[in-house]
Computed example of a mutant assay.
Amino acid sequence: MHPDDDIDALLTLAAAGGPGAPRRALLERHGAPRAALAAGPGAWREAGLNVTQIEALRTPDRAAVARALRWLEAPHHHLLGWHDPDYPPLLRRAPHPPLALFVAGDAARLWHPAVAVVGSRSPTAGGLDNAYDFTRALAASGLCVASGLAAGVDTAAHRAALDAQAPTVAVLGTGPDVAYPRANAGLLARIAGDDGAPPAGAVVSEHLPGTAARREHFPARNRILAGLTLGTLVIEAAERSGALITARQAAEAGREVFAVPGSIHNPLARGCHRLIREGAALVESATEVIDALGPLAAELAGDLRHRLAAPIHATAGPPGPAAEPLDPDYEKLWQALGHDPIPMDRLVERTGLTPAVLSSMLLLMELDGRVAVEHGRYCRVR
């Protein structure tokens, strides 16, 4: 957790808006939000902040910062800054990463190997079927499915993941508490755990809580969606669409791009056909996506192992005579887990570890096939 003054400073930096690179440089130079803010106008200018940003730091929007602080007080609400070791590693490597992320739900899911499933807001019936079927198969393989919580393909992808009892990540172009469209407010609450149940995934935004939908935010949202994921799958898209923007940003980030072909008479297939002509992989089944992303998912799991500084084989249970000693916390967690699913709060009681630490450890064990999660409850894999 950040000290309160670092949280306040990071929120002030986030609320300043404008180009992200100078504010990231300011954080890198000074190491912590509080120090970056205390450095003053000369250091801000030297880091490349423009006049508008400097004025925003001189006279911050205290009301917006106060709203964000209240939002952060709720369960399952998190703030990850560029300086934070828990900042998602894939997004850190992408072009134009955000200064900070507001996360509602299970923040550890942002380290989970994921694929973006995107497409038209007004898909055909066949497009909806493809979104649902591809997502179910991707989720069954262990991949997390991410999308933008928009109408159409996005909604179908999130619902399919939830129906498969698999995690899903929603990346918003609004504040983390604002569903767009409004009809997806219930879906947002379910993913974030704001409905009283354990989070079914994570809701992510670079915008402060309360930020309404603005047209210019959505292309920027798409870069985060592309940056958080190993690849982007386009189900149906017109030649000019947000889905194609996401796909191009994924390609610019060095990620895989997949497109489902369609009828030459379907205008929503033209965007996919264009992507295929430009080099996207033509896919007819989720298996093709899974096979292509498998090695990349293993690399991301390695990043998580390094972050937690724990050997993955230590999660397998009691060691044999020739095995290395278990990390004590992993041993404690393994003994706390049973063959029947138990909730996070019970694991906290049994281990004495914090929910944040447990969440990261459980994700690592899940990636290695040692732990299963069902409806926010965890158990050993039989």
Rank of each mutant, 00 (worst) to 15 (best):
I224F: 03
I224N: 03
L225S: 01
L228Q: 08
T229Y: 10
L230K: 12
T232A: 09
V234A: 10
I235L: 09
E236F: 10
E236K: 09
A237M: 03
A237G: 08
E239P: 00
R240T: 08
R240A: 07
S241I: 06
S241F: 10
G242C: 10
L244N: 05
T246N: 08
T246W: 09
A250E: 09
A251I: 04
A251W: 15
E252T: 12
A253V: 01
A253L: 03
A253C: 07
G254L: 01
R255V: 03
E256K: 03
E256Q: 14
E256V: 00
V260D: 04
V260S: 01
G262T: 01
G262Y: 08
S263C: 07
S263P: 11
S263Q: 02
I264Q: 12
P267I: 10
A269M: 05
A269T: 09
A269N: 12
R270T: 01
G271A: 06
C272A: 09
H273R: 14
H273V: 00
R274D: 08
L275R: 11
I276E: 05
I276D: 07
I276Q: 09
R277I: 06
G279P: 01
A281C: 12
E284L: 15
S285L: 00
A286Y: 04
T287N: 15
E288K: 13
E288Y: 00
I290N: 13
D291L: 14
A292N: 07
G294L: 12
G294W: 10
G294N: 05
P295S: 06
L296P: 00
L296H: 13
L296K: 04
A297S: 11
A298P: 01
E299F: 07
L300S: 06
L300G: 08
A301Y: 05
L304R: 07
L304I: 07
H306N: 12
H306T: 14
H306V: 15
R307E: 11
R307S: 03
R307P: 02
A309G: 15
A310Y: 08
A310W: 11
P311M: 05
I312R: 14
H313Q: 15
A316R: 14
P318S: 14
P319L: 09
P319E: 06
G320E: 00
P321C: 02
A322K: 11
E324G: 00
L326H: 02
P328Q: 13
P328R: 02
P328Y: 00
Y330H: 08
Y330S: 14
K332N: 15
L333Q: 06
W334M: 07
W334I: 00
W334Y: 15
Q335V: 10
Q335Y: 11
A336T: 09
L337M: 14
L337C: 13
H339F: 13
D340Y: 04
D340K: 09
P341N: 03
P343E: 04
M344F: 12
M344Q: 03
M344S: 07
